[in-house]
């Protein structure tokens, strides 16, 4: 039997705007995923530790504070260092196109901006987990 897709949904950084993260988490649940929701104000260390313990297929970060160019690379580096570099790192937030491109270059998965339908994110993670 194929396992369920497990996704870690985390709010990185200090901003408290969790509307998007929660909507995405609920939509993923309704798509049949098991969503591990960490809550707010997570440091890269917390996120990676949770990803390891929870054995997830993907890590989805929501960042609206503008700190994405610091936080995504830091999480990715830690994931590689701890031996889960093969787990998909994706996410969304207010992230300019150029930044998305340069993060992608660095090895981060696709990132989603405001106005993205939840189905796009779900399809992407499902496709990547297969």
């Amino acid at each position: 039997m194929a396992g369920k897709i497990r996704v870690l949904v985390a709010k990185a950084g200090l901003d408290g705007h969790d509307r998007g993260a929660k909507v995405v988490a609920s939509a993923m649940r309704d798509a049949g995923f098991e969503v591990i929701y960490t809550g707010l104000h997570q440091t890269p260390e917390m996120i990676v530790q949770a990803a390891i313990q929870e054995d997830v297929d993907a890590v989805a970060l929501s960042i609206l504070s503008g700190a994405h160019m610091t936080l995504f690379p830091r999480v990715l580096a830690l994931m590689r260092e701890k031996g889960i570099g093969d787990v998909l790192l994706t996410g969304g937030g207010i992230i300019p196109k150029e930044d998305m491109a340069s993060l992608k270059q660095a090895g981060v998965g696709q990132l989603f901006g405001p106005g993205t339908p939840t189905t796009a994110i779900i399809d992407y993670i499902r496709g990547a987990s297969e």
Partner: peptide, 29 residues
């Protein structure tokens, strides 16, 4: 698990933030 969709939101880690970087604790949802 939701009986309708087969999915679930596992939110217990939210309350366990202080433990989440402690190597002596292993949390599994």
């Amino acid at each position: 698990t939701s009986p309708y969709t087969g999915g679930a939101i596992l939110g217990d880690r939210v309350r366990m933030s202080e433990l989440s970087t402690d190597p002596g604790v292993f949390i599994r949802s």
